[in-house]
Structures are given as structure tokens and as C-alpha cells.
């Protein structure tokens, strides 16, 4: 194994600077600030999803393949590459699929004082989880499977953003068992294409 501190022989030769550069202070680095502006498109699926927040509603998309509900909707069932278009209104309750107690600040979120809990929120009727903050209890009391409900901003402060939900707080209901918590709880629905979790009567 070659010595990392010895340059490869092809690169170890002395560099002879032209005379004009010999007594000039070498340039060790240059700073070249970059600024680019983008106007990002939400797309029809995300736009309806965001606008619903301003009306204190949470909407997802139902897959035409087996009825699985996706949130946030992206206009596609990523399993099969099939377009989704059917909007479904979702409950404001669900459970914690898993979570992280974060001890670091998030750039641009000075309102969040570490440590705080970010979690996969699995809404009742949704087949996948999405990201949210959990508060309203001690961080140590957050659990996988804990039932939660949305805590909304006051009506006058709602807007077309998922941040219209301040955070998710415990409902006090019994936990969802670990083996049924999160994405892995999904089982393909029946021929009527309904959410398998609803069929089993839990959550």
C-alpha cells in the first residue's frame, strides 16, 4: 500500500514557476458566490394538497391499482408508476410510525428549539407516512405506535402550507401495536380496492 503522504511519482516533480510569478504571494483559494433563482412548480397534485391546508383539510390521492392512499399526493403511485388523481380527504388523527429526537437546529426553522421530535405520521386511512412534528408531551414519552391528532394554527393563520399544522399531539388512545405501525402495516386491499388497514378494523 502506497504512502498517502507521498504524492504519486508523476505528481512529485518540482514545479518551476515563471520568473514573473516567483515573488508573488500565492493564491490559496478564491471565493465565487453563486446565486441562482428558481420558480418551482408544485404541480396539480401538490397544489390541491397545499390549498386544502388553508381550509383546514388534509387530502391525499387514492391509487387506481389497489386503493392505497398516498400523502402528500404526487400524482403517481410509485409502486407501479400509475397516475393517481382521485382526491381523498383524510382524518386528522393517526399514529407515529417512527420518530427522531433531534438535538440540532434546522436551517430556517428558528421556531424549533432543540431537542424536538420529528416523526412519520401515519394518518388513519393513509397507506404511507409523512413527516410531522410531535409535541404536547415529553419527548421521552413519544413512542412508535402512539396515537396522535393534528394541532392546527388558529383559523386566521391557516395558509396553503403543511405548516398550517403546528404539530401532532397524543390523543391518549391505546397505541397501535408495533407490528401494525408504519408503512409495513399495509396489506393489499380486497377486490374493492379499500385500504387493508381499514378492513382489519384497526387504526
Amino acid at each position: 500500500m502506497s504512502d498517502p503522504d507521498v504524492p504519486p511519482s508523476a505528481l512529485s516533480g518540482d514545479v518551476t514557476l515563471p520568473a514573473v510569478l516567483r515573488d508573488v504571494e500565492p493564491v490559496r483559494s478564491v471565493r465565487t458566490p453563486i446565486r441562482l433563482e428558481y420558480s418551482v412548480t408544485a404541480g396539480s397534485a401538490a397544489e390541491a394538497y397545499l390549498r386544502a391546508y388553508a381550509e383546514k383539510r388534509i387530502v391525499g390521492h387514492r391509487s387506481p391499482v389497489d386503493g392505497a392512499v398516498f400523502i402528500p399526493p404526487r400524482g403517481v403511485d410509485p409502486r407501479y408508476g400509475q397516475e393517481t388523481a382521485e382526491e381523498v380527504e383524510l382524518a386528522h388523527t393517526g399514529h407515529v410510525g417512527s420518530f427522531c429526537v433531534t438535538h440540532l437546529p434546522i436551517p430556517g426553522r428558528s421556531d424549533l428549539v432543540p431537542p424536538y421530535v420529528s416523526a412519520w405520521i401515519h394518518l388513519d386511512g393513509s397507506a404511507i407516512g409523512f413527516l410531522g412534528l410531535v409535541a404536547g408531551c415529553a419527548n421521552e414519552d413519544v413512542r412508535i405506535g402512539m396515537r396522535v391528532r393534528a394541532v392546527w394554527k388558529p383559523d386566521g393563520e391557516l395558509g396553503p402550507t403543511s405548516e398550517s399544522i403546528l404539530h401532532w399531539e397524543p390523543t391518549g388512545e391505546p397505541d397501535v401495536p408495533f407490528e401494525r405501525a408504519g408503512n409495513r402495516a399495509w396489506r393489499a386491499g380486497g377486490p374493492d380496492g379499500r385500504d387493508g388497514r381499514q378492513e382489519r378494523g384497526d387504526a
Binding site: V40, A42, A46, L50, P72, G97, S98, F99, C100, V101, T102, L104, P105, I106, P107, G108, R109, L112, S118, A119, W120, L131, G132, L133, I144, T161, S162, E163, G182
Partner: peptide
Amino acid sequence: LSLPQPFSVSANAGAGGYFSPIIRQ
């Protein structure tokens, strides 16, 4: 990694925030 994305909530700080819930599972 934190280029502002106007349509998604930022509730995760970095890759560790992403993988922590998976490790917890």
C-alpha cells in the same frame, strides 16, 4: 442539501434525521 423547497415542510435536520427513525424501528 437545504436548498429551500417551497412545498415541503422542513422538519428534519440532515441525513441523520432521516435515518434515525429507521434505526429506531
